[in-house]
């Protein structure tokens, strides 16, 4: 079914088409939700909220951009709203250093599979996870991120720097793990 057919069916309230749209995009959107939230339960809640919004607002889809992109935007905004409402109080460990990743570390990142990168982001502290996701994966600029998250542009930049610092640290640990894994054989 094409995007247009999916939207038409959803507009008429056809349950089977709604399910087809869900089946088509749920896998990708679940991956998006998992990246913003802290655990699977939260991601599932956000996914459900997001799809309900999608079905309620499907008549707003312009038909010009991709349906997937439109659904993704709704999903990201739902996740951000969720994170704001949760008001996480347990303070994340602030890193003092914000060193740039070096070439060796970048190529170490390059060697990681999608699954491993996903797990890495999963472990990233909530403080900079959203900014990192929006900047590095969705491709938003710091100005847009500041607007979406209701923070200042400089905060967005600082959070991104911290995320990179955290990645640097995490990569060291991964190298150690890989070393141990290989040495067990």
């Amino acid at each position: 079914m094409t995007d247009i057919e999916l939207v038409k069916g959803c507009l008429s309230g056809n349950r089977e088409v709604q399910k087809a749209l869900f089946d088509c995009y749920a896998g990708k959107m679940m991956a998006v939700c998992l990246r913003y939230t802290e655990n699977r339960e939260e991601a599932e809640d956000v996914l459900q909220e997001g799809f309900i919004k999608v079905f309620e607002k499907i008549y707003q889809w312009e038909g010009s951009g991709s349906l997937g992109g439109w659904i993704r935007t709704i999903m990201i905004n739902t996740a951000l709203t969720f994170l704001r409402s949760r008001k996480k109080t347990n303070g994340h460990t602030d890193l003092d250093y914000a060193e740039e990743l070096n070439a060796g570390e970048i190529s170490a990142l390059d060697r990681l599979s999608a699954e491993e990168l996903m797990e890495l982001i999963d472990r990233m502290p909530p403080g900079y996870k959203s900014v990192f996701n929006l900047f590095a994966i969705e491709g938003y600029g710091h100005k847009e991120i500041a607007e979406m998250m209701g923070i200042s542009e400089s905060t967005s930049k600082t959070q991104y720097l911290k995320a990179k610092g955290w990645l640097k640290k995490a990569l060291e640990n991964i190298e150690k793990d890989v070393g141990e894994y290989r040495s067990t054989y």
Binding site: A26, G27, K28, M30, A31, L34, R35, L47, L112, S113, A114, L117, M118, I121, I137, E138
Partner: peptide
């Protein structure tokens, strides 16, 4: 690597 990743639902 991640933008188009899918996860089982």
């Amino acid at each position: 690597k991640l933008k188009e990743t899918e996860v089982g639902v």
